[in-house]
Simulated assay, not measured.
Amino acid sequence: MTTTVDRGQQARELFKQAYENRYTWDNNFPGYSADFELEIGYDTPLGRSGDKVLAAGTYTGSVSVPADLSDLNGIEVSGVSDPLAAEWIVNQIKDVITHRKRSDFESAHGKHEFALGGEADATGAVPISVGGDAMGSHYKIRDRQVVQVSRTMGRMSFVINHLDKLETETGYVSTAYTAVFTDPESGEVLNQLKFEDSYAEYGGYHLMAQQIVKGQSKGKPSYTRVTFSNIQIG
């Protein structure tokens, strides 16, 4: 007989395997610098309030990322003509660090409760819910990989579906995925975006070389492309 405890432990183990199978930068990560070219296809509101708008156009500059990934204030952008473009780049790098910064499973999820959300779907993905993170997180796990994330954060809900990946010797990196953002009360679709990421290896570390995002935001078309070049480790 399978008990609730057994099913909870099964869900925890499936999630842990996927969590530990992600590609992350190790504790010797030296930081890096790069030049960037940012193409904004349409005037783009920034932040949750949307009161700041980055005008459509192409922006260039340089960015440096500190070795200490806990110091997000250490991200520095220079040589860019518009401070809002610099803000966009900083937010982009913060998002990358969130996914690449190494953290052990117990530190990140040791206090959370895990539950199987039902049977595997037609693709073999197993639904798992995670309690205790205050965000109502739900995942689908297949082949030691997270293939779907759904979560509610305040006045925003989102579902991310992962479509493709880069396999490295120490874990996988998602390289293609869609994100749909909705109003959790009305169900209104706010944003629908598709991401295509590419990576290159420098000094033994896989770093983002380009990201292209296409879709619509609040009913208007959205397109961004950022390319990083002249990447220097350390």
Rank of each mutant, 00 (worst) to 15 (best):
148 Q>V: 08
155 R>K: 12
136 G>D: 03
147 V>P: 07
157 S>W: 00
127 P>T: 03
144 R>D: 15
151 R>D: 10
138 H>V: 12
142 R>W: 05
135 M>Q: 14
134 A>G: 12
150 S>K: 05
156 M>C: 12
140 K>D: 03
134 A>Q: 13
149 V>M: 04
153 M>F: 14
145 Q>V: 03
154 G>Q: 11
137 S>R: 15
131 G>T: 05
135 M>E: 14
131 G>S: 12
141 I>F: 01
143 D>R: 03
156 M>S: 15
156 M>R: 15
133 D>G: 11
145 Q>R: 10
157 S>P: 05
148 Q>K: 02
134 A>S: 12
155 R>L: 12
149 V>R: 07
152 T>K: 10
136 G>Q: 05
142 R>E: 14
136 G>K: 08
127 P>G: 06
144 R>A: 12
139 Y>M: 09
145 Q>K: 07
149 V>W: 00
134 A>D: 13
140 K>C: 02
136 G>T: 03
128 I>R: 09
150 S>L: 07
155 R>G: 13
145 Q>G: 01
146 V>F: 13
149 V>Y: 09
132 G>K: 04
135 M>A: 15
157 S>H: 08
132 G>N: 05
155 R>Q: 15
145 Q>L: 07
130 V>G: 10
127 P>C: 05
156 M>E: 13
156 M>T: 15
146 V>L: 10
134 A>N: 11
139 Y>C: 00
140 K>G: 02
132 G>E: 02
148 Q>I: 00
151 R>L: 09
129 S>W: 01
127 P>M: 02
150 S>P: 01
142 R>V: 09
128 I>E: 02
157 S>F: 06
151 R>C: 11
150 S>M: 05
151 R>M: 08
131 G>V: 00
136 G>Y: 07
133 D>A: 04
135 M>V: 11
131 G>C: 02
143 D>Q: 04
145 Q>I: 08
146 V>A: 07
145 Q>F: 06
129 S>T: 10
140 K>E: 06
152 T>R: 09
138 H>Q: 11
142 R>F: 06
149 V>E: 06
144 R>C: 06
142 R>D: 07
131 G>D: 05
157 S>G: 10
140 K>M: 06
146 V>H: 12
137 S>H: 11
131 G>N: 10
152 T>N: 05
127 P>V: 02
132 G>S: 00
134 A>E: 14
152 T>W: 02
134 A>H: 12
143 D>S: 03
127 P>I: 02
152 T>F: 04
156 M>Q: 15
149 V>H: 08
152 T>C: 03
154 G>D: 09
131 G>I: 03
148 Q>T: 10
143 D>K: 01
143 D>T: 03
153 M>T: 13
155 R>P: 11
129 S>L: 04
150 S>F: 02
148 Q>F: 02
134 A>P: 10
140 K>R: 09
156 M>Y: 13
127 P>H: 07
139 Y>N: 08
136 G>L: 03
137 S>Q: 15
134 A>I: 11
148 Q>L: 07
152 T>D: 09
139 Y>T: 08
133 D>C: 11
